[in-house]
């Protein structure tokens, strides 16, 4: 059980270590809602450049008055530099999704390979990998990501690297435990006694059994990465050229929008973050559930 660093220092909700991989059951309704929501957000993110041309969000070129409440011209009002909040929101989806997915891919690849290696290896290599995993599980991820993005050149890929490099350890630990338990199973013992090589065991038995677990974990990881990205942006660590939800909230906070009651650019970015994170979490929990259901209670 380890703390994955994220704002407020929370771990993934209820990701139990499943004892075995199961066949996929039907998609649970909550997961379906999550998938639908994600499809919508992805479509908006992809269409953003067409819907809202980038130059309309250039603070030096906007003509609209600042801090306008929602109107027909600006559905969600304007921000302190007169930019359209709805447009910013659409563009922000691009950063959130990109960073969330890319850093999770990095974390999942890293976590799965280190976890597999640590579960499979014996002797000093196992001990060394284990120590590294444990260390990264313990060090607060947000603090580490904060330090990384502070010292590297600012930019989207720095954020991706900072989040990816700090959030692989929990998965590595889970994968290691699973690998060890799978390799100790009589079914794998039987296959090894049949003459199977280590690669055969890994490829045909361990990886397929890990699949659903990693998938469930990846979905939860994307949600966490998105929260971490917005937190970093809120703290001032983001690509200054790409509008993001976290950066919008930073602006809202710095210009005193919250205390002034300008709800139209405090509420929407936060709601967008919650919706997307919730969607990924629901999909992840759906996977996790179908994984436990598929086990038939074993």
């Amino acid at each position: 059980m380890g703390g994955e660093g994220r704002p407020g220092g929370r771990t993934r909700p209820g990701l139990r270590t499943a004892s075995s991989a199961g066949r996929r059951a039907g998609v649970p309704p909550n997961a379906a809602i999550g998938l639908g929501l994600l499809a919508c957000v992805t479509a908006i993110a992809l269409a953003a450049p067409a819907l809202v041309p980038a130059e309309t969000l250039d603070p030096t070129r906007v003509t609209a008055p600042v801090n306008q409440p929602p109107s027909w011209a600006h559905w969600l009002g304007t921000d302190p530099s007169g930019r359209d909040v709805a447009g910013l929101l659409a563009w922000g989806a691009r950063v959130s999704l990109l960073v969330g997915v890319a850093s999770s891919v990095l974390a999942v690849v890293l976590g799965t390979s280190v976890g597999l290696a640590a579960g499979h290896a014996r002797g000093w290599l196992e001990a060394a990998l284990l120590r590294v995993i444990d260390f990264f599980v313990v060090v607060p991820g947000l603090v580490l990501a904060l330090a990384l993005s502070a010292v590297l050149q600012p930019g989207v890929w720095t954020i991706v690297a900072a989040i990816g490099l700090t959030s692989w350890s929990t998965l590595a630990r889970v994968v290691r435990a699973q690998t060890m338990s799978i390799e100790a199973r009589p079914s794998v013992e039987r296959v090894r006694a049949l003459g199977a090589s280590g690669w055969h065991v890994l490829g045909r038995h361990v990886l397929p059994a890990l699949g659903p677990l990693v998938l469930a974990h990846a979905n939860l990881a994307v949600g966490m990465a998105i929260i971490m990205e917005s937190t970093l942006a809120f703290l001032g660590l983001s690509d200054p050229l790409a509008p993001s939800w976290g950066a919008m909230l930073r602006e809202a906070s710095e210009t005193g929008a919250a205390t002034a009651g300008f709800w139209w650019f405090v509420l929407p970015p936060g709601l967008a973050i919650v919706a997307v994170v919730l969607a990924f979490t629901l999909v992840g929990r759906g996977f996790e559930r179908s994984l436990t259901v598929g086990l038939g209670g074993r």
């Binding site: 049949l194 055969h200 038939g296």
Partner: peptide, 26 residues
Amino acid sequence: FVPQSPDAALSPRQTVWDAVAEGLRI
């Protein structure tokens, strides 16, 4: 080798055919 507990000795995702043929394939 015939391991303890046939419940655990078979991978839950493999059909009887796959389970029996695994040695042949290896």
